[in-house]
């Protein structure tokens, strides 16, 4: 039997296709829990009185807080999958992330994320073949402003 290509036509066909948008309201408790989990004690993320006196005029979220927006739904683990295709390999890791930040994420914002896969490529690892998946996520706020872009590189491999 001829060997199946790792990058299938089905995978190629979804490159560049924009996902359904996912919107989420940025809640005070979510910001606090995120800041506590990363052990960043900057009062800007939790102290309203302090934050009001800064140029932000109120509480904002830590920069990478955005990675939590719609995470469950984008990871394909539960509650659906933004990218619907048959995964060639069962194991995945985060290989890299590239952020561009444009506007702060403020408490109470409604953030809308859309994502698309922009590339698949293969590399031979030391022990196993590797498949890299590059996706681009954009985050906008309720004013339509581009808040941030994230280019995310995932690597997957066989057992």
């Amino acid at each position: 039997m001829p060997e199946q290509p790792v990058i299938t036509d089905e995978m190629r066909s979804i490159i560049g296709v924009e996902s359904e948008p996912i919107s989420e309201v940025v809640e005070r408790g979510a910001i606090r829990r995120f800041a506590e989990a990363i052990e960043d004690t900057n009062p800007l993320y939790v102290d309203e009185v302090y934050a009001r006196k800064t140029r932000y005029g109120g509480i904002i979220a830590p920069p990478t807080f955005l990675c939590s927006i719609g995470h469950l739904r984008k990871s394909g683990r539960s509650g659906g999958d933004l990218f619907d295709f048959k995964r060639p390999y069962p194991n995945g890791r985060n290989a890299g992330t590239e952020w561009e930040f444009f506007e702060p994420v403020r408490l109470g914002d409604t953030i809308t994320m859309t994502a698309s896969i922009v590339d698949f490529y293969e590399k031979q690892g030391r022990e196993k073949p590797l498949l890299f998946t590059v996706s681009e996520l954009t985050f906008r706020n309720q004013l339509g402003q581009m808040v941030a872009k994230l280019r995310s590189i995932g690597v997957s491999f066989p057992d």
């Binding site: 990363i38 960043d40 900057n42 800007l44 800064t54 140029r55 830590p62 920069p63 990478t64 990675c67 890791r93 985060n94 290989a95 890299g96 992330t97 590239e98 952020w99 561009e100 930040f101 590189i153």
Partner: peptide, 25 residues
């Protein structure tokens, strides 16, 4: 990634802004 963001925001303080952050694991 969050640690590296904090590295920068702690350094630049409230008047600075983090514009880009890229890293490989």
């Amino acid at each position: 990634n969050a640690f590296l963001a904090q590295l920068m925001t702690d350094w630049i303080g409230i008047e600075g802004r983090l514009k880009k952050l890229a890293c490989q694991y």
